[in-house]
């Protein structure tokens, strides 16, 4: 397993969780977030990466995170539009090899893939869990009228 240089955009629950884990596993991690307070979610014990405060849709901020060295960029802000914009700049302007974006709107996934971006869609993941529960209840019969 090689050590990756990972830039994570958005230090919310998902971004900070990934940052803490990846840093502990020995990857080099830089986290970008507009709000300095968000960095409080980074663990003082496990996170040994860097923090960059600023708007990641500005190329200067990405440069500050040394994006030209990144093997992987992850966009994990709460806004699909921001995630798309930053992911595209990383891929097309800076030529980052692997770009993964969180996308809430499932109907946008195909467009992301066409643009060469990898996606994880929480809506589809939660949806599958709900469908499984519903189907299982129906197949199980029992309590269903």
């Amino acid at each position: 397993m090689k050590s990756l240089y990972v830039v994570i955009v958005g230090c919310g629950r998902l971004g900070s969780h990934l940052a803490n884990l990846l840093s502990r596993e020995g990857h080099r991690v830089v986290v970008i977030d507009q709000a300095g307070a968000s960095f409080g979610k980074l663990s003082s014990e496990t996170f040994s990466g860097f923090r960059v405060q600023g708007d990641a849709s500005e190329p200067a901020i990405l440069r500050k995170a040394k994006i030209d060295q990144a093997d992987l960029l992850i966009t994990a802000t709460h806004a699909d539009n921001v995630n798309l914009m930053v992911a595209l700049v990383a891929k097309r302007v800076f030529g980052v090899q692997h770009v993964m974006a969180r996308v809430y709107d499932p109907s946008r996934e195909q467009m992301y893939h066409d643009l060469g971006l990898e996606t994880v869609c929480p809506t589809l993941i939660a949806g599958e869990a709900f469908f499984k529960l519903v189907y299982r209840a129906i197949e199980g019969g029992g309590a269903v009228k």
Binding site: L4, H17, L18, E118, V120
Partner: peptide, 9 residues
């Protein structure tokens, strides 16, 4: 969701 990211990473 986190697990899906980690698996790919």
């Amino acid at each position: 969701v986190a697990a899906a990211f980690l698996q790919r990473i």
